[in-house]
Design a protein around this nucleic acid. Structure first.
Length: 317
DNA sequence: CGGAGTAAAAGGCACTT
DNA sequence: AAGTGACTTTTACTCCG
């Protein structure tokens, strides 16, 4: 698994392997990603360090001229701050920039400015909407340990939803949670509806409904989750070796070729393949263990596992 | 206990009325 | 908006080694 590298990683050379083992999965696949400015375990996806420091701009420069033109002072605009961090802030202290007290006349003036400032800043419905949504997106993603990439996608989609006036008649929490679920799937680090619903204010059904609403209205099509995407996470939770995981992925690919995965829940397929792979590799796990991390029942696991053996002509190992 | 399998209930989805 | 039907998953249970 760890020798699988994407083209992106190769060509941009923006990642560097680090020493040490991941505290979550114990594998030594910790990588420093200079582009996203995070330290992440490539095996299980756990984000180990995420710097606040602004390293990269949000724009891209394709040559030196463009770079000169686009460079400017201040940090890059961030997606997850509702006003993109550009709003003015007025201190509550009655002091000037040198720290001296203000004259009574000045104090009154500043008080008036503060009042105006407050009302213009927050009376803006849209900004208030966005800031509630973004803090919800942030809260859930840090609870689930999702990388910043996912939050940014969610934030972008949410902003689009607000611009298209899709929130009216729906709860901010509901829609923001749905955009986060959407972002996970788009970023290929799937979380199930349950996993996200559990740490949000909405239940699974509501979340699914809102997700469908958003994808329909914004014309977003995301293909069904590929079971392969679950192998890394389930595999690390089960402490399986790289060979076993590779075997599981291989099994899933063969199953897909035989078209026996269509219409089935991807978590169940992943569970069945992982269980079979663990048996083949002699790294046995019980059906219950595997089913539990995949959030399916042992019956479902058995059904997928049986289909795999039948279709791929594998004898009971 | 782990595993295999089954029937019936429940749930989700596409499609119709 | 409720109903229908094909299909998957879960629940609950039995049997085996």
């Amino acid at each position: 698994m760890s020798n699988v590298k994407t083209d992106r990683q190769e060509t941009l050379a923006q990642k560097k392997s680090l020493e040490g083992d991941c505290p979550s999965c114990g594998k030594s696949s910790i990588v420093r990603d200079y582009h996203q400015n995070i330290t992440i375990c490539e095996n299980c996806g756990r984000v180990l360090r995420e710097d606040i420091k602004d390293m990269g701009p949000e724009w891209r420069a394709y040559n030196q001229n463009e770079k000169n033109e686009r460079s400017r002072g201040g940090p890059p605009v961030s997606e997850t701050i509702h006003d993109k961090g550009l709003s003015t802030q007025i201190d509550w202290k009655d002091r000037d920039s040198r720290g001296n007290s203000l004259s009574p006349g000045q104090k009154a003036k500043i008080r008036r400015m503060r009042r105006w400032h407050k009302s213009t800043k927050l009376s803006n419905q849209k900004d208030r909407n966005l800031s509630t949504a973004f803090s919800e997106i942030d809260r859930i993603s840090s609870q689930l340990g999702l990388p910043r990439k996912v939050r940014n996608i969610a934030a972008r989609v949410y902003r689009e939803a607000v611009d298209r006036d899709l929130i009216r008649g729906h709860s901010i929490e509901g829609i923001s949670t749905a955009t986060l679920y959407l972002a996970c799937r788009k970023a290929q680090i799937p979380r199930t509806l349950e996993e996200i619903a559990e740490v949000s204010y909405v239940n699974k059904n509501e979340l699914g409904k809102n997700y469908r609403y958003i994808t329909r209205k914004l014309d977003i099509y995301i293909p069904p989750v590929n079971p392969v995407n679950y192998v890394a996470r389930f595999g690390s939770e089960l402490d399986l070796s790289g060979e076993t995981r590779t075997k599981a992925i291989e099994l899933i690919k063969k199953a897909e070729e035989k078209k026996i995965t269509l219409g089935k829940g991807p978590a169940g397929t992943a569970a069945g393949a992982i269980y079979l792979a663990s048996k083949i590799a002699g790294e046995n796990r019980t059906q219950k263990e595997v089913a539990e991390v995949a959030n399916v029942t042992a019956v479902t696991l058995r059904n997928r596992y049986r289909e795999l053996m039948e279709e791929l002509d594998i004898d009971n190992p």
